[in-house]
Amino acid sequence: MNTSQDIFDRAAHWHLASQRDDMDWDAFTAWLEADPAHARAYDEVSLADAALGEIEPPAPLHLAANDDPAQPVARGGWYRWAGTAIAACLLVVLSFAVLRPDAASVYHTEGQSMTVTLDDGSQVVLAPASELTVDGDQLALSGGAWFDVRHDPDRQLVIAAGLVQITDIGTRFDVQAAGQDVRVAVSEGRVSVRSEHLQAPVQLTAGRQLHFDGASGRSLAAPVEAASVGGWRSGQLTYADVPLRLVSADLSRYAGVEIEVPQAMAGRMFSGTLTIDDGNAAARDLSQLMGLGLERAGACYRLVDPAD
């Protein structure tokens, strides 16, 4: 590790020197020629520097330059505890829903979906085993819902789901919020997804989807077939590279079938369409499409790797 860090150190010095007129370009060429790893290191260092040109200036240091070594430790510590901040945000969302029950209408579904019509005529189809809180223009969702929102320049609907807020601009879209995972897929129009964990809101247009994974804080944007968005309303779930654990959570909600996914395969990606009228068939289809075995485990199924 030491030697590779030395290379990056060297690369950084070359990079800094290159911005001065006294740079020895022939010596730099010789250094690059000595080992292909040098050019890669140089690329990475200069890319990092170039990336600085695209970010906002950091907050200025609040203390004089060379003293107090406690500063970086304290700040680094704060960042390292960002996980706590996530939990705190989640609490804020939850307590919001709990603290203002009088002002809001709460819609809760068990086995059947439900259509909720908002004041302005916009419609929300709430998936089974889901809950929607409506407080004026502020909505909170846990579970799944299909939104068909009327365009109204004077009002803006905000949907809180997990750690993200979704803002619409007159559109049709689907939201699946299961635990820390939030997926937003747009069928028509455009929505904006924001979160404290995204530095800028993500604009999703028709045929695009976003998966926000609150556990890791990562987000994935990908294309989606617009026609398949909200397919659960007509009995189908369509996936393109979706982690098995989410497919399993969906099947529990939409097909009423519990499928245990061992931790080791929870992150494997599934692509395909499942029919949800028959939970047993859906479980079988899933296991076959993934090339996995399916075992009965009491009232549920368990996916098993035939290689084990």
Binding site: E56, A59, Y79, A82, G83, A85, I86, L163, E196, H197, L198, Q199, G214, S216, G217, R218, S219, L220, A221, A222, D241
Partner: peptide, 12 residues
């Protein structure tokens, strides 16, 4: 695709 990770950037 998978790009953003690790929450905790300064809110802006």
């Amino acid at each position: 695709g998978w790009i953003a990770e690790e929450a905790g950037g300064e809110p802006e």
